[in-house]
Amino acid sequence: MFTIFKSLLGNNNSDLKDLFASKDVFLVDVRSAAEFASGSVKNAVNIPLDQIGPQISKFKNKKNIVVFCRSGNRSSMAKNILEKNGINDVTNGGSLQNMQKYIES
């Protein structure tokens, strides 16, 4: 079961550690504006899932894009939308809680 979950996320913990070690990461919280206002991670921008398509230009020429949300579901959808639009350097960071663990460590 865990393997299935990892494949859905499209990343693993070592991938995230490597990304954060590079310090050149574009963090995108795809939760709603209200959820984002209640707290997120340092240096994250808020582009809600329903705005990913209309705001695709914000992702062009970015490297090490990490999308995340409350549980990992919306970030998985965001990753798929981005990849369908030719943005391929995208990692699904999963949940906000998971991201906080990596940002704070």
Rank of each mutant, 00 (worst) to 15 (best):
A37G: 15
L82D: 01
K63E: 13
L27M: 00
D89N: 15
M99A: 02
K60S: 03
E83W: 02
G72F: 11
A33M: 10
S22Y: 14
F68Y: 15
Q97D: 14
S22F: 14
S95P: 07
S7N: 12
P54V: 10
I81R: 07
S32P: 05
Q51Y: 07
L16M: 10
Q51V: 00
M1N: 07
V25R: 02
V67S: 03
G72S: 10
S75C: 03
S75L: 03
N11F: 09
S40I: 01
A34M: 14
R74W: 05
Q100T: 10
D18Y: 12
S105V: 13
N43Q: 14
N88A: 06
N61K: 13
I47V: 11
F59Q: 04
V30R: 02
D18W: 02
G39A: 11
G39N: 11
F36T: 02
T3I: 08
F36I: 06
I87E: 04
L19C: 04
T91Y: 10
I56T: 11
I47D: 01
L9F: 06
S105G: 15
L27E: 01
R70C: 00
L49N: 08
M1Y: 05
S105T: 14
G53K: 15
I103T: 10
N92P: 09
D89P: 05
L49V: 09
T3P: 00
A78S: 04
I47A: 04
L8C: 05
N98S: 13
A34N: 15
N80K: 15
N92S: 07
V90I: 07
T3K: 12
A34E: 15
G53V: 14
L96D: 05
K6T: 02
G72L: 10
D89C: 08
C69H: 01
K63Q: 10
N43A: 11
V45R: 03
A37N: 14
V67P: 01
F36Y: 15
F5V: 12
A44E: 11
L82I: 00
G10H: 03
N92L: 11
A78I: 02
R74L: 01
N46W: 06
I87C: 02
N64E: 06
L16N: 07
P48F: 05
F20N: 11
G10D: 09
V66I: 14
N73M: 12
M1L: 08
V66K: 00
V25K: 03
I65N: 01
I56P: 07
D18L: 13
A21N: 15
K101P: 00
S75H: 03
